[in-house]
Design a protein around this nucleic acid. Sequence first.
RNA 1: GCGCUUGUAGCUCAGUUGGAUAGAGCAACGGACUUCUAAUCCGUAGGUCGCAGGUUCGAAUCCUGCCAAGCGCGCCA
Length: 559
Amino acid sequence: MTGPSDILRELIRDAVLELADERGIKIEESVEVEVERPKREEHGDWATNIALQYSKVFGEKPRDLAMGIVNKLGSNPYIEKAEVAGPGFINFTLSRKWISELLINVIKDGPDFGRVNVGKGRKVQVEFVSANPTGPLHVGHGRGAAVGDVCANILAFAGWDVQREYYINDAGLQIDLLGKSTQARYFEICGEPGKAPFPEDGYKGAYIYELAQQILDEEGNRFLEIPPEESLPYFKDYACRVILEGIKKDLADFGVNFDMWFSEKSLYEGDLLQRTLETLKSNGYAYEADGATWFKATAFSDDKDRVLIRSNGAPTYFMSDIMYHKNKFDRGFDMVIDVWGADHHGYIPRMKAAVQALGRSPEDLQVLLIQFVNLLRGGKQVSMSTRSGEFVTLREVMEEVGVDAARYFFVMRRSDSHLDFDLDLAKSSTNENPVFYVQYAHARIHSIFREAKSRGVSMPENLESVDFSLLSSQEEVSLIRKIGSFPEEMAKAAEELAPHRVTFYLYDISSAFHSFYNAHRVLGVEPELEKARLCLVEACRVVIANSLKLLGVSAPEKM
RNA sequence: GCGCUUGUAGCUCAGUUGGAUAGAGCAACGGACUUCUAAUCCGUAGGUCGCAGGUUCGAAUCCUGCCAAGCGCGCCA
């Protein structure tokens, strides 16, 4: 896309080259011009530090060089002025032409405003939540769900072809343990607890009793008649299926929908295991020793090699993961994103090594770490312990604070830093709650249009005829700049896989709107000014609505 | 022992491909509604960016060392 920053970059580059040529100074054709948005309002719309970087090459003081560059700048309809400031920055202020084009574009593009094609249609898979189907989702999974989902939204908005996937760990010991736990509770309810003892590390949550009771209701006590080993598969399948259904329901109600539910079991149905091992061996990263098959992790600066196939013939979890990732890449994804709990961070180098061993770049796998959530109620930490089965479920949080607040809170911090989730705050409808703050801004704009309608005023039909130069107050200029930065902010969020940027952006633009709203009236002012302001708040509404959409948070018209 | 992450205002956090006077919110204090929603706004106050060196025109940002917190290092999953 060609935005003002690209135009500026080119203009500045030409000026620098011309100046260098004139002075007989040799510099590279590919001058790297950096333009950035200044932190301070009075420094204009864009700034460059080019004169500071090149002052040595030119043998001139930065300020003098900056002056020279400014004098060489060709005129451009989008630039109102360029001035030298501070130690040698060049600050640019954009013209009215730019402002009116911006606002007209926002209004015309509506829900599509801000789409940038940095993904260029490449395929990316976001795999997230992927909780073992051994119990209901808890708050930690909720954060992973929100972060993964919003990331997927942002990537799609930035031009990637996105697929959402949930990896079901339906093989292995945990499912075994789940089956045994359910079975033991079943016998316990039947009054024969001796038939199968509750496993030492079994799942102790109350939901296991509920599962056992359901089985008893549906099947009666017929399992008392047969040996526990024979009925175990039934308990495993039943428990796993019902819990997974619950998880799917929770996620759907949370606004998270997956394109693919991928079963771990299915990895072993074909010859993937053999093919993966062959790939690794032919690339020189797998070998046999001590009766086991090893991964040559030391080739990737791990401190020792890792087992793939145990001497008893069973593949390790690491092997499963390698197979799974080979499968992902074989499905044609250009990039694969795994969303993991932060306690798995030590596993990243190994997984990246495996990706390289499969012949891919380590950059093709991105891992997003989700730090723990610290729930607060009444200013005190809500104690949680998975072991004892005492944890707060995602459903409880959703029901207590609502989906909007829950999603917003889960993504409002960098995902790799601890999150304090204040339940009371999320529920409150006061100025302390950021969710209400941003939703309120949206509702207020709708309220303006409702009032406008009752006065018989509506948006101007011919946007080109609106005089946007009337929007010249400090509040209006700030708001326009904020609206203009939406595409690049979203592009940044996509590039950094940083959903929290969206919440910060939303807060900023809402704040700019509220300031504007308190300082100026939209309706009842001069007709020309009223037209321009209606366009301004409509553009603002579009951008707020688009941001909320990315977060999966509703944009209420009335509050 | 090795490794990863974090350390910014009283609290919760942005900012980290080096840039101008380090920014928000909450809490504190003082103000603003006869008007399109006061669920809002405006102002005041609050900082040796963990500590110490280094690199340079310039460091919260890069390098080294140290301190503190959390986590990870299995032929477990």
